[in-house]
């Protein structure tokens, strides 16, 4: 009897592992496939490639438009991340610390854009920006991305602040620390993991944003997702695979940073 049930359990475990592997393969296959294709020697995307080369990476380095778009997207993501942190941190602290009526409603309103389809947001932003002459400009681009990153940032930071150990800020107060000192010496260090996560998330979201960028980048300001989008409209060579491979690696790097930060939180918190 006992042997039978153990065998049954083993069988169930095997099935579970197989199911997990299948799901992972399904999710990751497109991402992983990008790497071999980017080293293809063919002139178009095909599977399996008939030969191997690094020529599409060379082509990428010689493609001025892609390089400019890459640089712009990187800078944009950087500006957006910094601004997001500067705006969302005080906002999150204020929201987390105060207890006024309607606080939860306010938080819901602030984070509502997370639920809107970005096409709706993009259209709304476009309508407003056209009148202000912001389309195709850096300030316009930054503002547009902030609309998306700020709600994310607020959510992550509020969660982070919610998990701070109880009363440590009060304790610092009783020891004679001015509220600003409490923030600098206690709150900020304890919410560093949440800040790192927020920064990484903002960067990825801004760097990857297609729809809003498509609406308001115009033709002068070249951004990587938009340029890629236009590129694949006319051509299907493995250059896009090379770009994608680099983006996947970059994202992986950021996720690793986040993971480390979260691991850090576990060691910092009680």
């Amino acid at each position: 009897m006992i042997r039978g049930s153990m065998m049954l359990q083993g069988l169930i475990r095997t099935f579970q592992l197989l199911a997990i592997a299948a799901i992972l393969a399904f999710l990751l296959a497109p991402v992983l496939l990008v790497f071999p294709i980017s080293f293809s020697a063919d002139a178009y995307v095909s599977w399996p490639p008939s030969g191997w080369s690094t020529k599409w990476y060379v082509a990428l380095l010689e493609n001025d438009e892609m390089l400019e778009a890459f640089r712009n997207s990187f800078l944009l993501a950087l500006y957006v991340t910094v601004l997001t942190l500067l705006i969302a941190t005080p906002a999150a602290v204020a929201l987390a610390r105060s207890t006024f009526v309607g606080r939860d409603t306010l938080i819901s309103i602030f984070t509502a854009p997370l639920l809107l389809p970005s096409i709706v947001l993009g259209l709304a932003i476009l309508i407003i920006f056209v009148g202000q002459g912001l389309v195709g400009t850096w300030p316009g681009m930054i503002l547009g991305h902030l609309v998306i990153t700020l709600p994310y940032a607020l959510r992550v930071l509020l969660t982070g602040l919610g998990t701070l150990p109880m009363f440590v800020e009060d304790a610092a107060g009783t020891l004679g620390a001015h509220p600003l000192t409490v923030f600098r010496r206690i709150t900020l260090p304890l919410m560093t993991p949440a800040l790192v996560a927020t920064g990484a998330l903002s960067f990825i979201v801004s760097f990857d944003e297609v729809v809003i960028s498509l609406f308001i980048a115009g033709t002068q300001l070249k951004l990587l997702p938009v340029s890629l989008y236009h590129y694949v409209e006319s051509r299907t060579d493995p250059l896009v695979a090379a770009v994608s491979a680099i983006m996947v690696l970059g994202t992986l790097l950021i996720v690793l940073i986040m993971e480390r930060a979260m691991g850090l939180r576990r060691t910092v918190a009680k």
């Binding site: 150990p165 109880m166 009363f167 304790a171 304890l190 910092v268 918190a269």
Partner: peptide, 8 residues
Amino acid sequence: FQSYALFP
């Protein structure tokens, strides 16, 4: 503090 509230 009852819960100590030490700075972790």
